[in-house]
């Protein structure tokens, strides 16, 4: 997933970015609202994690602005303030979920998965396509009953394609999903990742699931 993390504590921000990257997410980070605003204008994020107590304008003020500009990415508010009125105000201004510090990274990841799933209008975190079974919450993949071990980036690529079966993704679109602002992939990085994923998903004799549309990009199809 392509995520934006807005948090003014450098240590917390760094740690979360590292953990989320380890899980295969592409995370952009911002230390304050101004920086986050620039990133939000430039990129399309699947979810935003927003700290409330930011230097300058508060997180809620920024959220209100973004919602005013029709930014529809789900937002998880992150804060040390646990008072009911703060939470209610957060939800009223367009937050999708709330997490009080200190929290477990695992919980943040589960909530990110839940809010993005809801944003896509899906009730189940699993997807079954033919004999392929993907659990986005558990980040596990099985084909024909056999577990397939994917790296975080490979899973993220599969997630990008398999969430929208039949839709053709250009290399640029896949890049935006897999890499954050600072990660500048090599020109053939996407092709290499698709190649590696195909090798794991379609062992000998299995029907291929990821197809190439020449000049357009890649598409996931179970048929």
């Amino acid at each position: 997933m392509r995520l934006l993390l807005v948090e003014d504590s450098k240590r917390l921000r760094g740690t979360l970015v590292r953990a989320l990257a380890r899980l295969g997410h592409a995370v952009d980070e911002a230390a304050d609202g101004e920086e986050a605003d620039l990133l939000v204008r430039a990129n399309r994020y699947e979810a935003i994690v927003l700290d409330l107590m930011l230097p300058g304008r508060s997180g809620l003020e920024w959220l209100e602005r973004w919602r005013g500009r029709r930014l529809d990415a789900p937002v998880i508010i992150l804060t040390a303030l646990g008072a009911v009125e703060d939470r209610v105000r957060g939800f009223a201004l367009g937050a999708d979920d709330y997490l009080t510090k200190p929290f477990a990274i695992e919980e943040l990841v589960a909530r990110l998965e839940a809010v993005t799933r809801r944003a896509r209008g899906q009730a189940d975190s699993r997807r079954i396509a033919g004999d392929l079974e993907i659990d986005f919450a558990a980040r596990s993949v099985r084909r024909g009953g056999a577990d397939i071990v994917l790296t975080a980036r490979e899973f993220s690529l599969l997630e990008c394609l398999a969430r929208h079966p039949g839709r053709v993704f250009s290399r640029e679109q896949i890049e935006a999903h897999l890499y954050n602002e600072s990660g500048s992939p090599l020109s053939n990085a996407v092709d290499a990742a698709v190649y590696a994923l195909r090798k794991k998903l379609d062992p000998d004799g299995k029907r291929p699931l990821i197809h190439t549309r020449r000049g357009l990009g890649y598409v996931f199809e179970a048929k």
Binding site: S9, R11, L12, T15, A80, G82, T100, F103, A104, E106
Partner: peptide
Amino acid sequence: AAHELRTPLAELKAMAEL
């Protein structure tokens, strides 16, 4: 006070989890 204490705690917890 709770906010100020929660921030370094959150950092420590996340770092330890990582």
